[in-house]
Amino acid sequence: MENNGGSVVAMIGKDCVAIASDLRLGNQAVGIASNFDKVFPVNDKLYYGLPGLATDVYTLKEHLRFRVNMYRMKEEREITPKTFTHLVSSTLYEKRFGPFFIEPVVAGLPTPTELDPHPKPFISTMDTIGCVTTPKDFAVAGTAADKLYGVAEGLWEPDLEPEDLFETVSQTLLNAVDRDALSGWGAVVHIITHDKVITRTLRARMD
């Protein structure tokens, strides 16, 4: 975690979810790049973030892309956030005794089905070996996790509309990473709603 730095936060809103990350890639205390994305799309209703060891970010991202594509071809449908969470979890647990140094965060809007016409927004997070938690409010991970917990606990409230959720998640992320030496150097926020995904790159402190 402390090798490359980086943090991710996800939050639940009213019929929307948000996921955001910083853009720093470092070599311990030395900043290397300020365009290192840690949040990736699975489809237009499901995103996930991979804070942790940068080399494992690439490996895991490609590994998951492969497995999601296989799922898509076999099932002929999109993977749900919940199933994707378990896919990530079992992928991590396969490496139980030589783990990926990644603490994933998943955020998605399940598509309505006949069985569940009004699905709730979904977020989840895991430890490095795939132990899942599915919070009802927000999920944090990375080197600024403790700071993110503090700010999110103070700012988050239930049933935020997309624009209010954007403000909440952005303020949470920016103020947390500004107190973390290993996170920061820019930030990107994704707000997932039923009809669109809003992606904004934030102006942040670059020190």
């Binding site: 700071k147 503090g150 700012l155 303020q171 920016l174 103020n175 500004d178 107190r179």
Partner: peptide, 17 residues
């Protein structure tokens, strides 16, 4: 809990960001 509270105070007292 300094690491939890201080960034919150930065935001709410110093109006950071």
């Amino acid at each position: 809990a300094q690491s939890l509270i201080q960034p919150f105070l930065d935001n709410q007292i110093y109006f950071k960001n």
